[in-house]
């Protein structure tokens, strides 16, 4: 057995990958197999050393998510009908309205959850995908952390959709007040889903392949 210098843990210089060791780990249960094994002996999951289509999927889902994000911001999120008036508010207009009403805290939360995070996710995924494609060898640890954050935080973006769903379900007082989800709610949900799929499609192991293939 090859002895690996574990002393260099935390740096990338002396690291060896499983692939270099002729091993492949199950993505689900973590069982390590030899590279020629196709199915995980423990969980029957497919074993693949590198997902060669990963970047394609990432880009595809990402683009779909970004497309969905456009109507999510253009079209109204909430259709509020009260006895007196009927209003449609998009995400941004809702934020502005909240600021006008003085609820800056809530406005910040909505803004961060609905604008900043999705945008940040797009940025992060684009950055990761491009860096992998360029086989960049820098900041591998930071990029991996960024990937994990993106994957973790992705699901929380759905909070907006949940709020809309709960409001729509609760406020149905016929003529007095009604709240209905707008097209933007669906678009936003789709956008979040596509982004999450995009993040999931990303094979984080590619981060570590970069300098190997070049050197």
């Amino acid at each position: 057995m090859q002895v690996f210098d574990l002393g260099s843990t935390g740096t990338t210089s002396g690291l060896i990958t499983a692939r270099e060791a002729g091993l492949v780990a199950c993505q689900r249960c973590g069982q390590v197999h030899r590279q020629d094994v196709r199915l995980c002996t423990r969980c029957d999951g497919a074993l693949i050393s590198r997902d060669t289509d990963s970047l394609q999927k990432v880009w595809a889902w990402l683009i779909a998510g970004m497309i969905a994000f456009i109507p999510a911001n253009i079209y109204p999120m909430l259709l509020t009908s009260t006895l007196v008036e009927r209003s449609e508010s998009t995400i941004v207009s809702g934020v502005i309205e909240l600021i006008h009403h003085g609820s800056i805290g809530i406005a910040v939360i909505v803004f961060v959850a609905s604008i900043m995070i999705p945008m940040g996710k797009f940025m992060a995924i684009i950055y990761l995908a491009i860096s992998v494609q360029r086989k960049s060898g820098t900041n591998r640890h930071q990029r991996h952390k960024a990937y994990e954050i993106v994957e973790f935080i992705g699901r929380w973006s759905m909070i907006d959709v949940f709020v809309v769903a709960i409001l729509s379900a609760l406020v149905q007082l016929n003529t007095i007040a009604t709240i209905n989800p707008g097209i933007a709610a669906v678009s936003f949900a789709l956008s979040v889903i596509f982004t999450m799929l995009s993040a999931q499609s990303f094979d984080a192991r590619l981060i570590w392949d970069a300098d190997r293939t070049t050197t």
């Binding site: 060669t52 999927k57 595809a60 683009i63 497309i67 109507p71």
Partner: peptide, 20 residues
């Protein structure tokens, strides 16, 4: 041959958006 089927998703999304 290398194109993933996943590309259909953004295409559909785009076409739906454009159609809309």
């Amino acid at each position: 041959r290398r194109l993933s089927l996943v590309w259909l998703v953004p295409v559909v999304a785009l076409s739906v958006s454009l159609w809309a």
